Amino acid sequence: RKGCNVMATVDVFILWGLALVTLVVVLATLLPMLRLSHWVIRGFDFPRLQLAAVALVVLILQLALLDLGRPLSWFLVTATALSLGCQLWWILPYTVLWPREVKAARHGDPERTITILTSNVLTPNRNVGALISLVEKHQPDVLVTLESDQWWEDQLAVLKSRMPYTIQCPLDNLYGMHVFSRLPLIEAECRFLIEDDVPSMHALVELRSGEKVRIHFLHPAPPSPTENPESAERDAELVIVGRSVADTDEPVIVTGDLNDVAWSPTTRLFRKVSGLLDPRVGRGLHSTFHADYPLLRWPLDHLFHSEHFTLVSIQRLPSIGSDHFPLLTRLRYAPVRGQDQEPLQGDRDDDQWAKELAREQGASKHDVPEPGQGPEEINRK
């Protein structure tokens, strides 16, 4: 009898232990569905892959250890399975199991190819030689650095002999930004769209073939207890840029550290209102953060583009000592081949949500520079 009591106690312990873990998994799955911008809620947007792995392990333990003759056991199994399915719904598009959103480029004119290296360097990091070596090895047409202060500007000055076109905004608040380009930058401008100490950069880049591409470099602040307690500022910057580029038929690229994961509701909203494509879809996560913790990684550094481009390659480069890996993307300007590529489709609710996010911050798509748009077209809008 004593042995039976011990076994019953163990069974109860396992049941309620798994019930507690299931409750945590369910809450972590449901909370991000709320349109609340507090960092505690938005923080659950990030570790969906990790939460899916936890849900899978919990589901296996439930099936192995619980008495499936009890209704409570099946309730727990069902709740965990639904949570796992929900997490997979968000992340599966960023695996090779999903159809590719962007076509692979065919062999073509290299003069219509643009290579962009995006690198959050981490301000206190001093391994500038690693970044310069990557530039020398991969020969990007455009290099954008995030978190680069005056020290980084001074060290990267050696690149100017090969990349003479620059936009520079050294800051020591983790939001400095620099652009170095082999290709001409036209109407280049640094603008503080939402916050007075968080810059963005905007320009036309002229390809070797002569075509001009509108390009925006972004690094909005994340929702966190040490920075912005809410995601409102980040979300507003994304949607006003998205709504701005939606107004043009010209080729567009948006890149940078967006401090948001590829699958979050706000990044998806940005893709819907902008009409831009994500070359990661169907190709893999290419997670760029955190470089030091393999089990806690997600894609924070992004490149989105209009249907005018197809993809030559996208790859995460080796660490340069930052908490972010650099991201290297090669695109080919191929408007005919790319014209039937399908972006995420938005609806009236998405448009209304985007307008509300911008309105809450007193921001507008008209705050975003539109390089290449003459006064007549700007006034017409």
Rank of each mutant, 00 (worst) to 15 (best):
W16Q: 07
R112Q: 15
A64N: 11
L82R: 07
L31Q: 04
T123D: 14
R42P: 04
S73D: 02
T95G: 01
I91F: 01
M33G: 15
G69T: 09
V24G: 11
L66M: 03
L63P: 03
L63E: 07
D109K: 04
I41T: 11
A53F: 05
A19W: 08
R100N: 05
R112A: 14
L59A: 12
T115H: 10
V57D: 09
V102S: 06
L31G: 01
A52M: 00
F75N: 09
V25P: 10
P71R: 00
G108D: 11
L49E: 12
G43N: 03
L82S: 12
P124D: 02
L76S: 07
L66C: 03
R48S: 05
Y94T: 04
V102F: 09
L97F: 14
L122I: 05
G69P: 07
N125A: 07
W98Q: 04
L82A: 15
N120V: 01
E101W: 08
D109F: 02
L56R: 11
R126E: 05
L36V: 13
L61H: 06
I60M: 12
T113E: 15
A79T: 05
F46S: 08
V128N: 13
R106S: 13
L84T: 05
D109Y: 03
L51M: 14
A64V: 01
F75C: 13
E111V: 10
V26R: 03
V54P: 03
L27W: 07
M33Y: 11
E101M: 15
R106Q: 14
E111T: 09
W74P: 08
V96A: 13
T78K: 08
R48G: 00
A55I: 08
V58W: 06
V102G: 00
Q62R: 10
L82F: 10
P99M: 07
S83L: 02
L88Q: 03
A19V: 09
D109C: 02
W74F: 13
A105M: 06
L82N: 08
A55C: 07
P99V: 01
P71G: 10
